[in-house]
């Protein structure tokens, strides 16, 4: 299978590295208006061509599938164009910036008859997958309260597009969307959501939000996302139930960490290790590409991604209006 990556940032490099480990897959091209040196280097190692625009790779008949790893507000146009070009598609999360865009994307891929996967990678993190399995098996009894937090510093990218709420949707659509998706996977449809946060406070370089969800089943969830930490990346997962409690913490559960002696003139840096032979991004692409090649359906569908987006947009609305959002049955 011959794949092109649209986008040339961090996620493009993550996907390129993962694809290089999947047998029978070739990264034939990377396309972006500006391609940073790190991505140029990966393309060179993989023997991939560089293109200045997505249209160039979509026009190539030797490209079977594309991975869209561009800023959120561009997913819509690129996915629809890729569908019309008859390419299979894997798109980064969040699905889109607006619900209308997301619906149009799903309609376009359905009309074109192409397969469409979305990178809700948290479902492929082994601890999150294990928790979902334990809940589904009933090991927790009746689920009570889920707590999901995800925190980091503010993302630093070349054109600072994450800081533009109209492009990224802020921490709610970029970070909390993962946990909205996981919570739906574990607990089903949401009845009501209320959120508060810094998103509309106009603070440069800070965003954070907190949401309470009530599921139709009666379970509750607390979901928090933050881009207000000085550094690092931390996630926590906890679910209580009538029969027990599970929890995971990416910092406590890390199998290896270093604390390096300060170099001359520089502070010491703590470097966590992924600690898995196959990281979640590779597991995700193995499943999605297996499906594109005729294998079993992936655990995340385009409709799931649309529902996660619906929750994220509802959280933004709740933060803006100060009122909860109730979902029709």
């Amino acid at each position: 299978m011959r794949i092109a990556i649209i986008g040339a940032g961090t996620m493009a490099r993550v996907h390129a590295a993962a694809l290089s480990r999947i047998a029978g897959v070739t990264v034939v091209a990377i396309a972006a208006g500006e391609i940073p040196l790190a991505t140029v280097e990966i393309a060179r190692q993989l023997g991939a061509d560089l293109h200045a625009s997505a249209a160039d790779v979509l026009a190539r008949s030797d490209v079977d599938a594309v991975i869209v790893a561009t800023p959120t507000d561009t997913h819509h146009t690129l996915v629809i164009e890729a569908a019309r070009a008859g390419k299979q598609i894997i798109c980064e999360k969040p699905l889109a910036r607006t619900l209308e865009q997301g619906e149009a994307m799903l309609a376009a891929v359905a009309e074109a008859g192409v397969k469409f996967g979305v990178g809700h990678v948290v479902r492929y993190f082994p601890e999150y997958a294990a928790a979902q399995t334990m809940i589904a098996r009933g090991e927790l009894g009746t689920p009570g309260v889920a707590r999901l937090t995800r925190g980091a510093g503010f993302p630093q990218v070349a054109d600072n597009w994450y800081a533009d709420l109209q492009r990224s949707g802020g921490v709610v659509l970029d970070m909390m969307i993962h946990d909205f998706d996981w919570a739906r996977w574990a607990f089903g449809p949401v009845e009501r959501l209320h959120a508060q946060g810094l998103t509309f406070s106009g603070r440069a370089g800070k965003d954070a939000a907190m949401a309470i969800l009530r599921f139709r089943s009666g379970a509750l969830a607390y979901i928090e996302g933050s881009w207000s930490y000085p550094s690092g990346f931390r996630t926590t997962l906890e679910v209580s139930g009538s029969a027990g409690l599970i929890r995971a913490d990416n910092q406590k559960n890390s199998p290896l960490s270093f604390e390096l002696a300060p170099q001359a003139g520089a502070a010491g840096v703590a470097v966590p290790s992924g600690g898995l032979v196959e990281d979640p991004y590779l597991l995700q692409l193995r499943e999605l590409i297996g499906w594109l090649r005729g294998g079993p359906s992936p655990r995340v569908t385009g409709e799931d991604a649309l529902e996660a987006l619906r929750l994220g947009l509802a959280a933004l609305q709740s933060i803006r209006t100060g009122q909860p959002v109730t979902f029709a049955a």
């Binding site: 689920p143 509750l220 009538s242």
Partner: peptide, 19 residues
Amino acid sequence: AEAATRHHEIAVDDCGLLL
């Protein structure tokens, strides 16, 4: 706030969340 009874067979809320 949300309040619920999910962990025990009791007549009061046994869990909740506040913003």
